[in-house]
Amino acid sequence: MKQVTFLIADGVLKPSSLFNAIEIFEKANEFAEQQTGRPYYDIRLAGTNLEQPLVNGIFTLRVQPLKTAEKADLIILPSFAEQDDFAIRKSHEALDWVITQYQAGAEVASLCTGTFLLAATGLLEGKPCATHWKAAAYFRRLFPELKLHTNKIVTDQEGVYTAGGAISSLNLALHIIEKYNGRETALYCARVLQIDIDRNSQSPFMIFEGLKDHKDEVIRSIQDFIEEHVGNRLTVEQLASQSAMDRINFTRRFKKATQLSPADYVQRIKVESAKRLFESTGMQISEVMYEVGYGDVKAFRETFKKIAGMTPGDYRNKFNKII
């Protein structure tokens, strides 16, 4: 029997990813019992505090003391409600336990913002990782050296897994179950719980919010200018001139503030504007293309698919509210 420990570290937990992931492993046990007469997973909750608050304080979990927890085959770190440096400040005992268990052969997975806690162990160094797209900017500030992929649903390397968001946590659990038990078991869990097992990108669901949480007022004014002139053809030279800087200094300063090059930022603003038009109007693809400042259909389609994770037509068909 494979021992799975959900690590309940310090901080306020978000219950959705925790309970949903537990349910998937329970369904895998249900399938195993049907096939072999016995469950495959021994599921436990362990932590540094015997009572763990959940978001809004409605529920409290009672967990096994971490000091008495047996060796785990798989450790899962659920997501937290807070976005601060909790992973560094509050959870030293839990972090040390994870590192010790990994060195002894355990695999480790994080769900949604649980990636902050996993990152603080050092186990993500040199590995790809994911977290919820809305937490990505803050994650990069805390862990700028790590390889964060905001578009990914699941990452998997050297026994370390991460999931991109609360619902993505379901896909990570299915990924692990398929790896341990095979496709048939994973499909059973997906069908019973009505999960899209082959969802592989956060991109269609991301909302680009402008990356304005910085102190550079000049760059923020340029960001506002880009949004106000989204229908225009905007070049880096034009934006540099608008900010009274040369291209090299402007590009360096812009990227330092936003983590994106000016050209990438402009593309994301234009695609975000196009997404809103596809969602809320009956405009055709060519009309939306011109509205957000593109004159070449091929370039617009390629840029849109690169950023949104699907073609303009597919996005319109999936998210439009009025057609």
Score class of each variant (00 low, 15 high):
residue 68 T to C: 02
residue 208 F to V: 01
residue 63 V to M: 06
residue 107 E to D: 12
residue 48 T to A: 08
residue 205 F to I: 05
residue 200 N to D: 14
residue 181 N to M: 12
residue 226 I to G: 02
residue 313 G to I: 10
residue 31 F to K: 15
residue 305 K to S: 12
residue 100 T to E: 15
residue 266 V to L: 02
residue 233 R to Y: 11
residue 231 G to C: 02
residue 299 A to S: 14
residue 108 V to D: 10
residue 296 D to R: 03
residue 8 I to H: 04
residue 245 M to L: 13
residue 155 T to E: 11
residue 26 E to M: 11
residue 119 A to L: 01
residue 289 M to S: 08
residue 102 Y to K: 12
residue 29 N to K: 05
residue 138 Y to D: 12
residue 55 V to D: 11
residue 306 K to A: 12
residue 102 Y to C: 02
residue 280 S to K: 14
residue 211 L to I: 13
residue 13 L to Q: 09
residue 207 I to M: 06
residue 33 E to N: 07
residue 16 S to P: 03
residue 128 P to W: 00
residue 154 V to G: 07
residue 250 F to I: 01
residue 256 K to E: 15
residue 22 I to W: 00
residue 169 S to H: 08
residue 178 E to Q: 13
residue 271 V to A: 07
residue 155 T to C: 08
residue 231 G to V: 03
residue 290 Y to N: 13
residue 36 T to Q: 14
residue 259 Q to H: 14
residue 45 L to I: 03
residue 269 I to V: 15
residue 247 R to M: 10
residue 65 P to H: 01
residue 81 A to I: 01
residue 14 K to A: 14
residue 106 A to V: 10
residue 158 E to P: 02
residue 84 D to W: 01
residue 1 M to C: 10
residue 150 T to S: 10
residue 299 A to M: 13
residue 118 L to Y: 09
residue 138 Y to W: 11
residue 145 E to M: 10
residue 155 T to F: 03
residue 114 G to F: 09
residue 80 F to A: 07
residue 259 Q to F: 15
residue 138 Y to L: 09
residue 110 S to N: 11
residue 262 P to A: 11
residue 91 S to K: 00
residue 222 I to W: 00
residue 153 I to P: 01
residue 102 Y to I: 04
residue 290 Y to H: 15
residue 73 D to H: 07
residue 183 R to S: 14
residue 253 R to V: 07
residue 277 L to E: 09
residue 137 A to G: 06
residue 25 F to R: 03
residue 181 N to Y: 09
residue 162 T to C: 04
residue 277 L to M: 12
residue 47 G to L: 06
residue 109 A to T: 06
residue 97 W to R: 00
residue 2 K to I: 04
residue 184 E to L: 11
residue 127 K to V: 02
residue 302 E to A: 09
residue 84 D to Y: 05
residue 56 N to P: 01
residue 126 G to I: 03
residue 233 R to W: 12
residue 161 Y to S: 10
residue 206 M to L: 07
residue 187 L to P: 05
residue 85 D to E: 15
residue 138 Y to C: 00
residue 316 R to N: 08
residue 302 E to W: 04
residue 279 E to F: 01
residue 203 S to E: 11
residue 47 G to Q: 05
residue 223 Q to G: 05
residue 11 G to W: 04
residue 182 G to E: 09
residue 271 V to M: 06
residue 153 I to G: 04
residue 75 I to S: 07
residue 279 E to W: 01
residue 13 L to T: 08
residue 65 P to N: 05
residue 41 Y to W: 09
residue 73 D to K: 10
residue 146 L to Q: 05
residue 15 P to Y: 09
residue 86 F to A: 07
residue 297 V to Y: 13
residue 16 S to G: 04
residue 82 E to N: 07
residue 125 E to N: 09
residue 223 Q to N: 08
residue 279 E to Q: 13
residue 289 M to Y: 01
residue 228 E to K: 14
residue 97 W to H: 05
residue 189 C to D: 11
residue 312 P to G: 03
residue 240 A to D: 09
residue 18 L to I: 03
residue 163 A to M: 06
residue 207 I to A: 10
residue 114 G to H: 01
residue 176 I to W: 08
residue 17 S to P: 15
residue 219 I to M: 08
residue 135 A to L: 07
residue 248 I to E: 11
residue 268 R to C: 03
residue 306 K to D: 12
residue 187 L to H: 13
residue 198 D to N: 14
residue 125 E to T: 15
residue 312 P to I: 02
residue 59 F to G: 03
